[in-house]
Structures are given as C-alpha cells and as structure tokens.
Computed example of a mutant assay.
Amino acid sequence: MSKGLVEIDGSVLEGGGQILRIALTISAIKKIPIRVVKIRAGRNKPGLMEQHLKGLELMRDMCNGRLTGGHMGSTEIQFWPNELKGGTYTAKIKTAGSITLLLQVAVPAALFADSATVLNITGGTNTEMAPQIDFYTEVFRPNLEKFGATFDFELRKRGYFPKGNGEVSVTVDPVAHLNPVILTERGSITDIYGWSYTAGTVPIRLAYLLAENAEKLLKEYGHVAIQKYKEDPKVAPDNSSGLVLVAETTTHCVLGGSGMFRKNAKVEEIGEEAANKLIHTITEGACVDEYTQDQIVILMALAKGESKVRIGAVTMHTKTAIFVIELLLPQVKFEIIPDGKTNILKCNGCGN
C-alpha cells in the first residue's frame, strides 16, 4: 500500500462502479487520500469506462486534487484531494453513460464546498442501467431535502442510448451540515403519479400503452394520475420511451419506480415492470425504495447525529456503500435491525 493512502478493493461486494463513486465522494469531503484497486473487476469489461473516468476528472477538478491511473481501462487509481471549491464545472461523457451516476458522486461533495457549485454535465439522461434523471429529481431530491439540502436543476436536452448527448445543469448550494433523519413510519399512500413519454419517431400511443399497463396494476393502491406525452424534438431528438412513477404517503415518504423501453421488450412488460417496482416497496412497507436506499447511506453517514430509516431488503448496493464508508470513516457504524418485512437502517453520522 502506498504511504498515506487508504486502499479499497474494487472487486468486493457489488464489484462495480459504485465502490469507486462512494470512495471518491467520501475522499473529497473528508480529504482522505485513496487508492482503489481491481476497479470493476466483477464486470465483463473491467476497469474504468467513459463515465467513471469523467466522474474521476470531475471530482479531481472540484477539489483541485491529484489523480494517477485516470485513463480508460485502468483498474487502479490513486486520488489525493484538497479543499472542495465552488464554481462552475463541466463533464462531457462522450457515450450515453449515465449523468445521474456522476451526480451521485458530485452532488453530495458539492454540499460541502466553500461556495455554490454549478455542474454542467453531458451524457445519458435516461438510460437502462441507472436511475433516469426524472427519478433523481422527483424521488431522490425530496429525500435529500429531508436531510436539509437540495439542488436546482435545468434539463437542456435529453440523451438516450446509444447516442447520449443529453445536457443538464445542476446548482448546489453548500450546507453547514446535514441534518439527521428519522424516517420509520411509512403511513398510507396519498398520491400515485408519474410521466409516460415517447421521443423521436416513437409514436405517442406507446406512452399511453405504457401508462395503461402500469395503471391497471396500481389502481388498487389509490388514485393514479400518469401524464402521457411526446417530448419536444428540440429537447429530445432521438428515439426512446419510458415511464417514471412516484408514490407519496401521509408521512411524506416519497417512493419511486421506473422502466425504459429496450430491444426485444414488449410494451406491456415495461409498464408492468415500473409498476411492480413501486408496488414492491408499497407492500413491504419501506419508507424509501430500493434505488433510493443506497443513495441515502452516504447522507446518513455525513449527517450530524443519529438517523434511522425503514428500508426493505438490504440491497447489494447498500451493503457496498456501507462497506466503503465504514472503511474510510471508522468512527461511523451502521446497524441493520430486522423488523418484520422491513429493516431499520441506523447510523450515528460523523457530521462534517
């Protein structure tokens, strides 16, 4: 191990890009030099892909850090952070790599910069293997706000697989600290709503079919209102279709589910898939869905005080996030307390 560097094995647990993302964020916020080895060893194409490289470069720029091993295909990096500085930063993913995965790295870090941060990012806004940008703004952001932080968002252009070229601008104001959250009472469902869209040459009738198949499954859980529309070709010139769903509860829980049209998939499968993801969270009684679960782990760790959140089954992404955080921040310990179909995730955060 290089002197002064905390070494992280990128092949453990989830074995993908999440280990690198969590490590980078904690490293930048807490100014902990890191060495990540065996990066994405569990993937068909190990090493850094375009979106991971852009995430590394973005974090390097935000904290005026030093990076070695930052090239395509690299399976080892070393990162020495300095002070996080506000300002305007640009990251251009040349592929349809997910913008939201870059935001998962950069937004928590920007909360602890010395002034406001503007992130201008190009890449994929709505892609299969990551949360759609609408999920990030409509489901994750309300959960972030429970911790006392938020961000402003401007969608300039949508980008789909395989071309990408989507453009977003995100503004993050710093916070003195994150507040601890107690989110253990799910309450009952008050609203279910969402957005079903098509873009490019995909006919709008597909948006109606996606929504209808989701509504059939969701109607027994309450009133469902899904907007069906075709994207403005100036904003979304390429072909795609998909669905993002949100459920709110009497205790202000915000849950989500989503689906995107993909090759060889039937339209009804996509609508049902999105609905079933949301139904799964509703029926198990969790206060956050499985896709928000691992994203709030870092917020709980950084909050000033004890947080408790009712989650469903502990996902591999959540286990991975906890592993990396506890390795880098030994003073932070998570506890998972089984409670019926759910678990209480407990953490006494370290503050900033």
Rank of each mutant, 00 (worst) to 15 (best):
L56V: 05
T320F: 09
V105R: 02
T283P: 11
T150W: 03
A225G: 10
T198L: 02
G312I: 12
E7A: 08
A113N: 01
S74W: 13
V244T: 14
I121C: 10
V254R: 07
T281L: 05
I296H: 02
V267D: 03
G123V: 04
K333E: 07
K346P: 03
I29D: 00
I311E: 08
E248S: 15
T342L: 05
K266S: 12
L13C: 13
S240V: 02
S27Q: 01
T150V: 06
D339Y: 09
D232E: 10
H280P: 02
A265C: 08
A109G: 03
F140L: 15
K38S: 11
R158C: 03
L102C: 01
V235H: 05
I121V: 14
L103F: 09
G222S: 12
G271K: 03
S27N: 09
R141S: 04
N348M: 04
P46D: 14
F161V: 08
I337W: 08
K277S: 12
K346H: 05
Q18R: 04
T184V: 14
K333D: 06
T100C: 04
G70A: 14
H280C: 14
T281C: 07
N348S: 10
N179M: 05
K308Y: 01
G257K: 01
G164E: 04
I337N: 10
T137I: 15
A110M: 02
V107P: 00
G200I: 07
R310V: 06
Y193M: 13
C253N: 12
Q227G: 11
I337P: 00
N165E: 11
H177W: 09
E76V: 11
C287N: 09
N264C: 05
D339Q: 10
K92N: 05
V175R: 07
N126Q: 10
T283C: 10
K85N: 06
A113P: 02
M260R: 06
Q293L: 11
G271V: 10
R205D: 15
Q295L: 14
R66N: 12
K3M: 12
L327V: 15
A211V: 07
E76Y: 12
T201I: 07
T201L: 09
V170L: 04
L20E: 06
R60W: 05
Q293D: 15
Y291A: 13
